[in-house]
Design a protein around this nucleic acid. Structure first.
Length: 462
RNA sequence: UCCAGAGUAGCUCAAUGGUAGAGCAAUCGGCUGUUAACCGAUCGGUUGUUGGUUCGAGUCCAACCUCUGGAGCCA
């Protein structure tokens, strides 16, 4: 048999072909008196390929009724210019075969479905236009992440998924254990984790940052990109229990350079998708979010505004706005505050830096003012915080003080402290939620719709 | 976890406390180089669950379940 041609390639053909083999799933069929139109989609493009099957094709009478929406089909024929109103390519079938049937209970129709309904059939939703687009863009966005860092000589580090260290402040952990919950080993009234698989309590990672610091302090510029897990009981459209995070870590790098990289990174991802996924972006613009293109171009074209936390609080206090949550130096900024800054006040992405040390984790570098740390958050319109990062505390004595303030055990982090004992160096990094970025780029408003099989509290179906 | 809203046919939604309906899908037929085709017919329901009020409940009340939006936590 001749080699298979993917639909996306057939649609972009430069010249006709006498022999082509197309395989995919039937989206819809329209029967005429002497022939049928069958729209085939194989997931490689949003646009379907139209196939014309004449009633003189062998097996037409018997098999064409089985070419129902959802059925898998193979067609051999000729690729020709469309004779219909729309320009482009179509296939004149010389033979066809129903590879896999789909009966009338196939839940996807040629009409549009709500995202909520499609979520319930997560195993079939990639066959829909919306989710085909989402997951093609997801793939491309992952590629763009690697491209950005590889181009800049960053080394990709696979940090562990199972870990015994809690990256403090990053949320609740999932425990990893082989202990039989019905008969756990007990010592002095407590579960004896020294008899567990790793001989100590262990968890699914909430961040690869600490491990990335190890590699930054030896390989200069590194990044991690992998799954992370949070056992928070968060029921929102922006949180999942399992999500992917991108965490670059750079040696000999201060907070300003960190902010520069974060800004370039966000812009680079947007530019990549606009350039490489035009068909998908047009779909999102048309059916998901009318403001999408403008918002992305807005972010792409403007330098990000930079303000200190103190200035940001000042702006909020002087805004004359009434907020549901109090604005006060020393308190965390709420979603409504972040949104005001980026959407109303500056009307562009904003990087807020130098947060009070009391609201930030132990590893962030203390500033000379004695009250703030070198932390930064990038805020974008519509979504809020998309990047969070900091310069890390590289001074051993200061870091040890932080451990005491945060009541953390220095013994547990001996290796992390060792980095400050041997050739310590100023270094910085940040984290970006991959799905958050994907939501920003596609306009899709629920994180469950940008993950193939979303894990959220109470839901691990599929 | 908190606040608000919703749950009716496969899907999207109607239905004043009084006979549960439409469009789409599906099935059958017709028509057509059609293209989210069109025309006609047919099929399709334990109104989320359990209890309560009432002569009578999809509708009112209570509890629970599920989903959605927002908030908190955060990425």
């Amino acid at each position: 048999m001749i080699k298979r041609t993917l639909v996306k390639h057939a649609l972009k053909a430069k010249e006709p072909s006498d022999a082509i083999r197309i395989e995919g799933w039937v989206r819809t069929r329209r029967d005429a008196k002497a022939f049928s139109f069958v729209e085939i989609n194989d997931g490689t493009s949003l646009t379907n390929l139209q196939v014309i099957i004449d009633n003189t094709v062998p097996g037409y009478e018997e098999h064409i009724p089985q070419a129902t929406t959802g059925a898998a089909i193979r067609v051999l024929g000729k690729l020709t210019r469309s004779q219909g109103k729309s320009e482009g390519w179509e296939v004149l079938a010389e033979s066809f075969e129903i590879v896999g049937h789909a009966d009338a209970s196939y839940p996807l129709q040629k009409k549009g479905h709500s995202a909520e309904f499609l979520r319930e059939i997560a195993h079939l939703r990639p066959r829909s236009n919306l989710f085909g687009c989402v997951f093609r863009v997801r793939s491309r966005l992952a590629q763009a992440v690697h491209h950005f860092f590889q181009q800049r000589d960053f080394v990709y580090i696979h940090t562990p998924i199972i870990t015994a260290s809690d990256c403090e402040g990053a949320g609740e952990l999932f425990r990893v254990t082989t202990i039989d919950p019905s008969k756990p080993p007990i010592k002095e009234g407590l579960i004896d984790y020294s008899r567990d698989f790793f001989e100590k309590p262990s968890y699914l990672t909430v961040s690869g940052q600490l491990a990335a610091e190890v590699f930054a302090c030896s390989m200069s510029n590194v990044y991690t990109f992998g799954p992370t897990f949070r056992a928070e009981n968060s029921n929102t459209s922006r949180h999942a229990s399992e999500f992917w995070m991108i965490e670059p870590e750079m040696a000999f790098c201060d907070l300003n350079e960190d902010m520069d990289v974060a800004e370039e990174f966000v812009k680079s991802l947007i530019a990549d998708i606009l350039e490489n996924c035009p068909e998908e972006m047009a779909f999102f613009y048309k059916f998901v979010d009318k403001g999408l293109t403008d918002r992305l171009k807005w972010v792409l074209d403007r330098p990000f505004e930079r303000v200190s936390y103190e200035e940001a609080i000042d702006i909020l206090l002087k805004s004359g706005q009434t907020f549901d949550y109090p604005v006060e130096y020393g308190l965390n900024m709420q979603s409504e505050h972040e949104r005001y800054l980026t959407e109303k006040h500056f009307k562009c992405p904003v990087t807020v830096y130098n947060y009070p040390k009391t609201i930030k984790p132990f590893y962030m570098r203390a500033n000379d003012d004695g009250k703030t740390v070198a932390a930064m958050d990038v805020l974008v319109p519509g979504i809020g915080e998309i990047v969070g990062g900091s310069q890390r505390e590289e001074r051993l004595d200061v870091l040890e003080q932080h451990f005491e303030h945060h009541q953390l055990s220095k013994e547990d982090y001996w290796w992390y402290l060792d980095l400050r004992r041997f050739g310590t160096v100023p270094h910085s990094g940040f984290g970006m939620g991959f799905e958050r970025m994907l939501m920003f780029v596609t306009g899709v408003s629920n994180i469950r719709d940008v993950i193939p099989f979303a894990r959220t509290p109470g839901n691990a179906e599929f």
